[in-house]
Write a protein that binds this DNA or RNA. Sequence first.
DNA 1: TTGTACGCGTTATCAG
DNA 2: CTGATAACGCGTACAA
Lengths: 334, 334
Amino acid sequence: MAVDLRAVAELSGVSVSTVSRALRGSPRVNSRTRAKVLRAAESLNYRPNAAARGLRTRQSQLVGVVIPNLVSVTFVNLFSHLQAGFRAHGYETVLSVTNGEPEQELAAFATLLGHQIDGVIAIGSYSVSTDFLRESRLPAVHLFNAPDQPAGDCVTINEFESTQDAIGHLISHGHRRIGCIDGSSEPTVAGYEYAVRKHDLPMDPQLLHLGKYDTETGTEGVDKLVALDDPPTAIFFGCYENWLSGIPRLLEHGLTIPDQMSVVCRDDAEMLRWWRPSISAVDVQVPAIAKLAVDRLVDAMATDEGALTEQRHGKYQVATTLIKRHSVADPPRR
Amino acid sequence: MAVDLRAVAELSGVSVSTVSRALRGSPRVNSRTRAKVLRAAESLNYRPNAAARGLRTRQSQLVGVVIPNLVSVTFVNLFSHLQAGFRAHGYETVLSVTNGEPEQELAAFATLLGHQIDGVIAIGSYSVSTDFLRESRLPAVHLFNAPDQPAGDCVTINEFESTQDAIGHLISHGHRRIGCIDGSSEPTVAGYEYAVRKHDLPMDPQLLHLGKYDTETGTEGVDKLVALDDPPTAIFFGCYENWLSGIPRLLEHGLTIPDQMSVVCRDDAEMLRWWRPSISAVDVQVPAIAKLAVDRLVDAMATDEGALTEQRHGKYQVATTLIKRHSVADPPRR
DNA sequence: TTGTACGCGTTATCAG
DNA sequence: CTGATAACGCGTACAA
């Protein structure tokens, strides 16, 4: 039923090995036979069986991308760029969404391993699954987090500096009480504190709301900050999921941006440009991150044959950019 | 290096066939040997090679999902539900994004075919690739469009009725000039005209802006409608990509919702609930659509062995729901 | 109940 | 330059 190498061989009157070579562009084949073979393959609509090839070559040309969600446009963009990047290197991409659940992440790695993927990009992974991944010895690259005992190179954004930049920007506008909402992230807290201290402002832990990378945290955080006795005059949102719900919540509280509340978000998105007023944001340079991750993984997959047992994994950080729009003003007079 | 059936067989002191049977839960194996085998497999961390199994069984347990983009949350949601649904049936999902380009779509089908997928969900496909798909005889389900010569069952939403509902809702509020922005879609136009005629309103083609399912069409459409000599008092956006950019553009033109412009969107999203005012929308029932599509494809893949050559393909429509929020008011007095 | 042997479609080795 | 032939890891008739 299915058209295989043998069928092409018969039609073109040569052996399967010759067909295989011809199709794969081996130089060790007469150009006239090659033409003949190509014509036959074309007319039969031959398509190589990737599974069989993978079985033989021990390479599936498949890479896994394990991602917490597709809610964040940052992740969606990232995936698009990763897919395009890998495709340029001849790899197809298999996506797995974990909903931020450790078990789902573990299951994803296991399933992908069963499908003989050649490597994996792990985004925001948990320690259990990182252990699993490391022990599997599969070429891997961590994205957006750098575990203590990584399974491969780590590509991250500079959360510390980007937070510091954003907070510094707000302070330079005269804000003295600045709220910060984020999924739990040490570098973000550190960056916040550093910026506050550097400008000799008092550090008030009440202004920090750390939760998860989800929309609930955004609304909760806004509710909490707004209800403070001495509420902030500006808020920094640390991630897409948080600001997506948090900004509308601000409006719901009757606050106008930027007159009554200045806002800066990390994870830029088209929407922030469209909104009125447009919102200042930290751009995380998704294309650059994706390119770096692809390159590192492709590299790891290539040199994996040599398999240095206790290889040192590289750490990379991609710098972020602060885009100033119209959501930041001087704080209102008291 | 890799742990295979043979390794497990050796450790447990039985033959590979027994191991294969034990692991696959065949009844034709002693419960004591089974236990022994399971223990051995566990300790070796055995994981079946899906490629080899697929080569043997001619089933990859992989389904392809070919989708125009992941910008629309409708598509993102859809993908999540499809993935979950297929997983429940023992299938893993391979995603391919086409950016709405015919060639990319064709390439996607070809690649997926090479990876021996057992079936495919084709979302918004072009005729060239539909032809290709049909000729490949791969079990398929069309989603969100029903080609003239489909390659499988078609699951669509009732664009005609949902448009009619939305327009009717606006008319019932007293609107007489209603704009309509959408990617090109005949049923939408038909629904619009039907609703307008039914209520004895004049049909003005200028009020229709048909473009593509992208953000540009949203802004262009708004610009065009607003600039009309006799602009509409309400707008219906036919898809996510259009309203995402179109609504902010409305605000940019200084129009307030709903006082100066009423709005209804198709493709509901959390965001529409959060925005102030919240936006009325047509909910396309993504979970129901996904479930139906999964069921139809699983069915097709199961009965494919019997391969009825000229099988009649089913057409299914999933009804939409109009959710009334706060973006529709009576038109302003002249 | 268990083991032997073969083949799935491909690539790699080795003769010719 | 080309052709037999042997794997790759697994499932399954068939034999024991």
